[in-house]
Each structure stands twice: as C-alpha cells, then as structure tokens.
Deep mutational scan, measured.
Amino acid sequence: MTSCHIAEEHIQKVAIFGGTHGNELTGVFLVKHWLENGAEIQRTGLEVKPFITNPRAVKKCTRYIDCDLNRIFDLENLGKKMSEDLPYEVRRAQEINHLFGPKDSEDSYDIIFDLHNTTSNMGCTLILEDSRNNFLIQMFHYIKTSLAPLPCYVYLIEHPSLKYATTRSIAKYPVGIEVGPQPQGVLRADILDQMRKMIKHALDFIHHFNEGKEFPPCAIEVYKIIEKVDYPRDENGEIAAIIHPNLQDQDWKPLHPGDPMFLTLDGKTIPLGGDCTVYPVFVNEAAYYEKKEAFAKTTKLTLNAKSIRCCLH
C-alpha cells in the first residue's frame, strides 16, 4: 500500500463567511444568496454554514464600524470581559468565536472560507496562513488546477512579526479568498463568478477527501510576504508620492531593483532599492491607505505537500 500522510479526520463542519468587511460585496451577495438557497454549497455528509460576519458594517456598506474585524481574533480580544464599552467588532468577534470556535479547541469548525474583495488587480487569490499544512496545500492545488487556465495565486502570510489574527483563524483550516479588482461597494459579475467557482472547487475537494480519495504528493507556487511598504510621506505625515503608473495593476509581476515604484507630484520617480527582485501584491489597495500600506513585497517559492487521505471509520 502506498505510504501517505493521513489527515486527522474527515471534514464535518464548514463555514463560509461574507461581510467580514461590509463594503466587499461579492461575499456579502453570495452568502445572502446561499442563506436563501444553499443547494449549490451542500455536499453529502458535510455541514456547510453561510454566515454574515459583520452585519452592521454590511448594512452601512462600510469596511467596519469601530475597528477591523479581520485583525482582532487574538486571545487578548477574544478574552476581554464582555461589555457595551467594547468596540462593536470586538464584541462581534467574541460572538463569532462562540459560534464557530472556540479558537484553538477541538470544537472549532474544521474549515472557514472568508470571502473578500480587493481594489487591487490580484485576480483569484487564496490566502494561506501555514506553509506546513498538507491538507490546505492539497486543497489549493486542486482549486488552482480546477480553475486553469484562469490564474489563481496563493498568498502566504506566515511571518515572524506580522500577526494578522484573522476572522477565519478560529477554524482548524483557515482559508482566505480574495478576488479583484473590484471597487468597494460595487458588485461585478465576473468577480462574483470567479469567487463562486473557487468555493465550488473547494467544496468538491472536501467531498472527494471525505469519500476516501487519496491525493498524491503535489507542489504549489506561493508568494510569501516579506514586508509592507508605506507611501513616501512629508514631515507632516502626508502622502508625498503615489503608486507609479508602471507599478499600478502589476500585482504578482516581478519588481526589480531600480524599477519605478512611486511618483511625486513634481514628476520624480522613486525606484525600488535593494538588490532583490520582489513580487508586489495589494498594490494601491483602497482599504490600506489608513493602514499606511502602499503594497506588500513578496518572494516566490514552492511548497510541497505529502499525499493525504481521509481516515475512514
């Protein structure tokens, strides 16, 4: 018999989150649709729960009410004593943790798909938090293969000092899905179709896995975050240069030392320094102006996964 890495157990509980950011409308629209008619997301033997994560922000069509829901799922915020004085999103995070967690427990949901849009030209993107997770690498390989020839990129946010504390991190297997470009507060049919297909293929993978299909060893190309880059700023902290036209919409493309990065209003080009080629992502993302992030630098690498098969009882 072929030796293989056996994944822990079959997958039982899956959640699909929309509206973690209330103005990213593809996930909101799909989740609302699936709450009314969820036939397309159901798979035999699998509990799939669509869920609106930040209903107040969705109602106002804004990213958040008090603070970013997708950055506060750490033990400090989840452990705060519940009171009306807490920011709305912290209270909501505790409610979500109660419903789908608790985080880092045996009772937490197996998989959470968190649906997002970006204003950046990132196409279909899967966000991975753990480079050693054979199950998710296999799932992402399946999704990428199923979507081809449509490109699907994998963004690895594993980093020693950049801690995200994402909404989906309460699950055993957290999956971020990011599709763009799409303006905030807008629905685009092409973007919706791409996100819908990503979810379909992900659920198909889980179904095949649960039925005992063995997935042979595989490898995927990923883009691992190195650092986030702020806009150049003046002495008052105001933005002093904008994304250069040569960099705009060039997510995932190589940016070499000396290539144009920013452009000042008086026409001066600010190039990339250093001696390493990087791959920019979230270029000129609207939501990241407040976070002082013009783009993120990534490096390209390959992740390998062992063969996996479900432990059938």
Rank of each mutant, 00 (worst) to 15 (best):
C218L: 02
T44Y: 08
P232I: 00
R71M: 12
P55T: 12
E178K: 15
P216K: 08
L75K: 11
H256K: 12
N246C: 09
P149C: 00
V31K: 05
R196V: 05
T26A: 15
L128N: 04
T269V: 14
Y109D: 00
Q194Y: 12
D190A: 04
G267Q: 07
G22R: 09
T302K: 09
I239N: 00
F29G: 08
N121K: 07
T44P: 15
I199M: 12
D204I: 02
H244Q: 06
L247Q: 01
C61Y: 10
V278W: 04
E9P: 14
H141W: 01
E293F: 08
S131R: 11
F140Q: 04
L187G: 00
D204W: 01
D193Y: 15
T298Q: 00
Y289S: 15
I177S: 04
G180Q: 04
L162D: 15
L312Y: 15
H5Y: 10
T167D: 06
E227K: 03
E40M: 02
Y231N: 02
K163P: 13
V175T: 02
S307R: 12
P102S: 09
Q184T: 12
V186D: 03
N97G: 09
P260L: 01
E285C: 13
H98R: 14
D204K: 04
V175D: 00
T277G: 00
E40G: 03
Y164G: 15
G212K: 00
N236T: 10
E40N: 01
F113I: 10
L303V: 11
L303F: 00
F295H: 00
N236V: 08
Y288R: 14
F51C: 10
I16Q: 01
Q182M: 05
V14A: 07
N121C: 08
S131M: 09
A148I: 07
K163R: 13
H5R: 13
E76N: 12
D230P: 15
D259P: 03
N284V: 02
S161H: 13
C4A: 14
E106I: 12
D107M: 12
T302H: 08
R309E: 01
P181M: 00
A93D: 06
V48H: 03
K213V: 15
I112M: 01
L75Q: 14
E221S: 04
G180A: 00
K268L: 08
S108K: 13
Q194V: 08
T2E: 15
F51Y: 13
I170V: 14
F209R: 01
S3L: 09
I157Y: 12
K268N: 10
I16V: 09
S105K: 12
L203D: 05
T26W: 00
I65L: 11
P280Q: 04
T118Y: 00
A148Y: 14
I170N: 06
E47N: 10
I41E: 04
C124D: 05
T269D: 10
I137E: 04
A286I: 03
I170A: 08
E158V: 01
F205D: 03
K32G: 09
H116N: 07
S3E: 15
Y173F: 14
F17S: 00
G38W: 09
D114A: 01
K49I: 10
T53F: 03
G237C: 00
D74Q: 12
E211W: 06
A286E: 08
L303H: 01
V283S: 06
P254Q: 06
A296R: 11
G258N: 09
Q138F: 06
G79D: 13
G18N: 05
H141N: 14
P87L: 10
S146A: 14
L126N: 05
F113N: 00
F17R: 08
R92Y: 06
Y164L: 14
P280H: 06
P55W: 09
L255A: 00
L115H: 03
V14N: 02
G237T: 02
V154K: 05
A296C: 14
F205K: 04
G27E: 03
I65T: 10
S131I: 07
K268Q: 12
I226Q: 10
N97A: 11
D114K: 01
Y173N: 11
M195E: 00
N54P: 07
S120F: 05
P149K: 00
K224A: 05
N77A: 12
Y231D: 00
K60F: 10
L265G: 08
A286P: 10
R132P: 07
N117S: 14
I226W: 08
N121A: 09
L69T: 06
R168N: 11
Q184E: 15
I16L: 09
L46H: 02
M261V: 15
D104H: 15
S161D: 15
Y231Q: 01
I65S: 07
Q42F: 11
S3R: 13
K306G: 14
E47C: 11
K306S: 13
D104K: 14
Q248N: 01
D230E: 14
N77Q: 12
W252L: 09
A93Y: 12
P280V: 04
P257M: 02
P260R: 01
K32I: 01
K13W: 01
L265A: 12
A219Y: 07
T119F: 02
Q184G: 12
M122H: 06
E158Q: 07
I226L: 12
C67N: 10
Q184D: 14
T277I: 11
R71H: 13
K200A: 10
E129P: 14
S161T: 13
C311L: 13
V90K: 09
P149V: 04
L156R: 03
A296W: 07
P271F: 09
M139R: 05
Q182E: 05
I16K: 06
L187V: 14
V31E: 04
E76P: 12
L150H: 12
T269C: 09
K224H: 07
S131C: 09
H159M: 09
R196G: 01
I191N: 02
L203I: 07
Q42L: 08
N37F: 07
I65Q: 08
S307T: 09
P280S: 00
S83L: 13
I157D: 15
K300R: 11
P181T: 04
L312K: 13
G45L: 00
L247R: 04
I270W: 00
I72A: 14
L203A: 03
K224V: 02
I170C: 11
I127V: 13
G22A: 10
D259C: 03
L35S: 10
D114P: 02
P271R: 12
Q182H: 05
N70L: 08
L255G: 03
K49V: 14
Y223E: 06
